[in-house]
Amino acid sequence: MILEEKTLSSEKIYNGKIINLRIDTVELPDHKYQKREIVEHPGAVAVLAITKENEIIMVKQYRKTVEETLWEVPAGKLEIGEDPKKCAMRELKEETGYSCKKIELINTFYTSPGFSDEKMYLYLAKDLVEGDPNPDEDEYVEIHKVKVEDALDMLQNGTIKDAKTIIAILMSKQLI
């Protein structure tokens, strides 16, 4: 049995700079009807940037949504029509100042498919070249180098709480 929901109607509720919100009326497999609130997001990238010394380039950034400063890998929203690989290189450079000679897609995943269509592209960046960061005017970040072993400890003790960063660090064990 294939469990699908058939969209009967869709209503745009909000169009914003980062997200849009719509409400879909769907028919469930048992022929009942339900409303689905869906956040539309253009997608995003995250970058697992690893130095030759097996350090992960990370940022600490205050996130208003959770009222906390979080440890994260560099990341950012895709612009409409933007190539994810180019976005990953741009975000790495803007947030940390680093550029890379090698970058490859290592995974894609949905961040919260229960309510959002955001797709995250996770890249591995190596052969890093240090430079000056150029963050967005509303972006305030601290840049840190964290040894892979220390990052794994930070996962264990709950210091790192950001899902994309957790995925990136767990994948780093297989990539280095």
Rank of each mutant, 00 (worst) to 15 (best):
T7E: 13
T7V: 15
S9G: 07
K12R: 06
Y14A: 05
N15D: 09
K17H: 04
N20F: 05
L21C: 07
R22N: 07
R22E: 11
I23S: 03
I23K: 14
D24E: 13
D24A: 02
T25D: 00
V26A: 03
E27H: 02
L28M: 13
H31M: 07
H31I: 00
K35L: 13
R36Y: 00
E37M: 13
E37Q: 10
P42M: 05
P42K: 06
A44P: 01
A44S: 15
V45R: 01
V45K: 10
V45G: 03
V47K: 00
V47Q: 03
L48Q: 01
I50D: 03
K52R: 13
E53Q: 12
I57Q: 09
I57D: 04
I57K: 12
K60H: 11
Y62Q: 02
K64E: 09
T65M: 11
E67N: 15
W71N: 01
W71S: 04
V73R: 05
P74V: 07
A75Q: 11
K77R: 12
L78V: 11
I80L: 07
D83A: 02
C87F: 01
M89L: 15
M89I: 08
R90G: 07
E91W: 15
L92W: 10
K93P: 08
K93D: 06
E95F: 11
E95I: 15
T96M: 00
G97A: 01
G97C: 01
Y98S: 05
Y98C: 10
S99F: 12
C100Y: 09
K101D: 04
E104N: 09
L105T: 00
I106C: 04
N107Q: 12
P113L: 02
G114Q: 10
G114W: 03
F115G: 12
S116L: 05
S116H: 00
D117Y: 05
K119Y: 00
M120P: 01
Y123H: 09
A125F: 11
K126P: 03
K126S: 14
D127M: 09
V129I: 15
G131L: 05
D132F: 12
P135L: 03
D136K: 01
E139M: 10
V141Y: 03
V141H: 08
I143L: 09
H144L: 12
K145G: 05
K145N: 02
V146H: 02
V146S: 00
V148L: 14
V148K: 08
E149T: 14
D150F: 08
D150T: 14
A151I: 08
M154Q: 06
M154D: 00
L155C: 12
Q156F: 12
G158S: 04
I160Y: 01
D162Y: 15
K164E: 05
T165I: 05
I167Q: 08
I169T: 01
I169W: 09
L175F: 09
L175V: 09
L175R: 10
